[in-house]
């Protein structure tokens, strides 16, 4: 299972660095050739990425061609925005190290810490 996750990241990197939509065959040919990979494995990975809405696909002849839904930076930023925004409502989904405080409370904390250091 871990292997498949790693391959997902590699396939996504291929899509992100491409300038146009890629077919399964094109992705397979672009992947680093460190070991033999089956066409169907890459097809499954691309299908998963599409199902998770990370990649979009369009018909090219009889095959599907895949492109990333968002750029790499936008993808990461959107996930981080989700992660940082869920803090209040769904406390149990992700566990944050610390919540973000309004400036006056943050100043109060800094004063506390400074007093301790003196």
């Amino acid at each position: 299972m871990k292997g498949l996750g790693e391959l997902e990241a590699q396939v996504m990197d291929v899509l992100w660095s491409a300038t146009e939509a890629l077919t399964v065959r094109q992705v397979l040919d672009t992947l680093p050739q460190e070991r033999h990979r089956a066409y169907t494995t890459v097809m499954t990975v691309l299908d998963n990425l599409h199902r998770k809405d990370f990649a979009q696909r369009e018909r090219v002849g009889r095959a599907w061609a895949y492109r990333p839904t968002r750029s790499r930076a936008a993808h990461a930023a959107a996930l981080m925005t989700d992660a940082l925004g869920t803090g209040d409502d769904r406390t149990a989904a992700l566990l944050h190290f610390v919540e973000h405080l309004p400036p006056d409370e943050a100043a109060q904390l800094r004063a506390l810490l400074d007093r301790e250091r003196d």
Partner: peptide, 18 residues
């Protein structure tokens, strides 16, 4: 807890941080 608040981040009033 106390950096400048970037966009998309919720500030928690009276949270347990203090």
């Amino acid at each position: 807890a106390g950096g400048p608040r970037p966009e998309g981040v919720l500030a928690a009033n009276g949270g347990p941080a203090v």
